[in-house]
Write a protein that binds this DNA or RNA. Sequence first.
RNA 1: GCGCGCUUAGCUCAGUUGGUUAGAGCGUCUGUUUUACACACAGAAGGCCGGGGGUUCGAACCCCUCAGCGCGCACCA
Length: 726
Amino acid sequence: MNELPEKLLKPYNPKETEGRIYKIWEESGFFNPDVCVKKGITKADGEKFVIVLPPPNATGVLHLGHTLEDSMQDTLIRYARMQGKLTLWLPGTDHAAIATDAKVTKILEKEGLKKKDIGREKFLERVDEFVENSREIIVSQLRKMGASLDWSREAFTLDSARSLAVRTAFKKMYDDGLIYRGIKVINWDPKGQTTVSDDEVVHKLEKGKLYTFRYSKDFPIPIATTRPETKIGDTAVAVNPKDERYKKFINKTYKNIEFAGTVLDIKIIDDESIDMEFGTGAVGITPAHSMTDFELGNKHKLLSITVINEFAKMTDNAGYLVAGKKTTEAREIIVNWLKENNLLEATKEIDINLSTAERTGGIIEPLPKLQWFVDVNKKIPDRGNKSLKELMLEPVRKEEIKIIPNHFEKVYFNWIENLRDWCISRQIWYGHRIPVWYHEPICIPKGGKEEQVSKCVEMIVSIEKPVCEYCDAKYMQDEDTLDTWFSSGLWTFSTLGWPDLNASDLKRFHPTSIINPGYEILFFWVARMILMSQYLLGDIPFKTIYLHGILRDAKGQKFSKSLGNGVDPIEVINEYGADALRMAMIVGIGPGADSKFDIQKVKAYKLFANKIWNITRYVLSVERAGELKKELVNEFNSLIKDVTSDMENFRFYLAAEKLYAYVWRRFADEIIEESKGNTGYGTTLHYILENSLKLLHPFMPFITEEIWSTLLKNENLLMVEKWPNV
RNA sequence: GCGCGCUUAGCUCAGUUGGUUAGAGCGUCUGUUUUACACACAGAAGGCCGGGGGUUCGAACCCCUCAGCGCGCACCA
């Protein structure tokens, strides 16, 4: 019998171990691929494996859902590193513009402060402070998980390097005609006081009423609407050209119709898009307050009258009955007016689509506004005359990018096919300021000489602040900021040194190997990364998209603050150990599948950690003697093969389960039991233990490293040992 | 409306290209303090793999169909 270290006589204590081990790893420098090359662990020109961490929002700290993807990614990264690949896992955080802006606004409100009162500069100082605090917590949480991230490359979506990338990308897109400024009906969030993109609008079905009415007694066609208050802005009625009922009215204009405290001019137009079956088969067209009507309005050259403002109140254009009223009040007033004038012909209960802003919950008001857009249909000469839509579709179609699970490809295609131009300007303060500059309204002639002033350029898109060549007036930057996903879209290469095309990281590490976000940000983020990378680099951003599902609580509800069902990952780690939490996040959770969090599962893997501990204790008590038992080695080798193949195919959820089954059910329960009383097993037991530790390391890095380095007193760290390929 | 997914043990879920007696965790029951581990061990009960039809030597897995549940997208006013 060998002497056993004292700590082996007690159950495994993750709390005492994990912090110490992480420190050893960090001090080794092996999280950084350059150090691995320098120390001869990996070859500089070897195969590479790169993941950029989906940057957590700086709105708060990590929740349990994050530990799901952190576990998956660290497992893949550690496996790759042990395979001897040039391995980089790059950390960072996301400024999450709207979310963070809203969060800090709320905090200020609690202090009795208003955003407007303290001003843009002071407000941004407060946000920076808040974000820095969140970032520090997030980083410490990632360390607790055992994440082998290369901290020397940490990035932030709003730091100076990323800002340069954003401005460069914007300018190039503008110069190529892919970014344009225009007046369109956009999704206005009255609560957040900003536009949001189509993707940031959440559609819900709600009980509502469909009102059928005529503008006046003399008006020949009844129309149906769910929003009577917008009808004050109507300038046309559209019918289907095939509709026999209304054919004779097409192209007639009815003037000076007295309607609910205002006067309307309504033209009857025909359009194929009108459904003859719905309502009365005739649609009142409100170009200013509906995206479809806006497009119809453009097509038929209709007048657009804005009757609702940014605060979801009726404008002065809306007539004496409702001007200044809230839209909800205006609706009631108008319905009453219709009733009083015997114009309301029917009221029907139907499900109506209620659109709200994803972040603030505000009810979306479609409004015409001057905004910045990304044109997704324009052909790009530099990119084979393909549009951004096509550039997004192509690599997935050609399987240069593989989506796991596969069925999300259809979801992806479906989204792109329905995609419209992307509204990228936001009226919030926190975010990347739009790199567009406007000349002061009045020119200040240089030296009092006026002759050049006519040449002053009104608007300049520029990476740096421009100076007027012809006069002394200044350029003022656009007040708006960019959609947060604009900068996130650059993440796979803005973190590697782009726009410097000679940056060594960019050359060595792009495209990345795999991206591992939740499926809920497939459109928001993954699609935008493909868009940006395809357009700006002419390259894919990653080869594989491994989508994970949503982690829910035991009842199947989403974790959320309002439900108060949050679980602090740090508490879980403190009680059960990071290894146990990691295993619970890996085993049995297939790609793209939602899963329910059960603390029992974590507990089970804590017991497994202890099992490994006791196996070690037993094996260490046995002398390394006798021949290697060929059968057992063969059996173990087939496990290696199996697990390796699972890892190569991103089936880590199966690999982990197999290791668990082997180590506990086979090695401990059978092989070790069999060995008792038999001599000559020593060498074999040591062989299986050591190699099991290697296989387990990507999944349970702390305990395996502790046993390997501290107890088995190996010279090299387990994290850079060679994976036992057979 | 268009699209996607799920339905496997009491509960939560795996099941890789179709291939022996369908697996895991938790729970339940019976026994065991056997010097690696009671944070353990030995053993047991529990499944017409949602229903029906088809392809196949062979189906939880492929095809069709029905039912229930969930999700995404959407310019039915």
